[in-house]
């Protein structure tokens, strides 16, 4: 196991490259989820405001 992590002396470089790959793509996958939730929240809030305005003259 230690030998595997060591990667013949290149461990730091190899693992850093793989980590950047996983972290960046993971962040990329989260962004649209977050964006979609925010948009839906904004629209829902706007609809609520509009219906409140209508019911209380």
């Amino acid at each position: 196991m230690a030998e595997f992590l060591h990667m013949g002396g290149y461990g730091a470089y190899v693992w850093a490259a793989y980590t950047v790959f996983v972290v960046v793509l993971f962040a990329d996958a989260l962004m649209p989820l977050w964006q979609r939730r925010n948009t839906l929240r904004e629209i829902d809030a706007r609809l609520r405001r509009e219906s409140n305005r209508k019911s209380t003259p």
Binding site: A29, M31, P32, T39, L40, E42
Partner: peptide, 24 residues
């Protein structure tokens, strides 16, 4: 995934988006 999120924002005034926003 990004296109879906972008379309919701672009079409936020349309009926189909309102439906999704309210149920969600």
């Amino acid at each position: 995934a990004r296109s879906r999120a972008a379309l919701l924002a672009l079409e936020s005034g349309k009926e189909w988006v309102r439906g999704i926003a309210q149920t969600q």
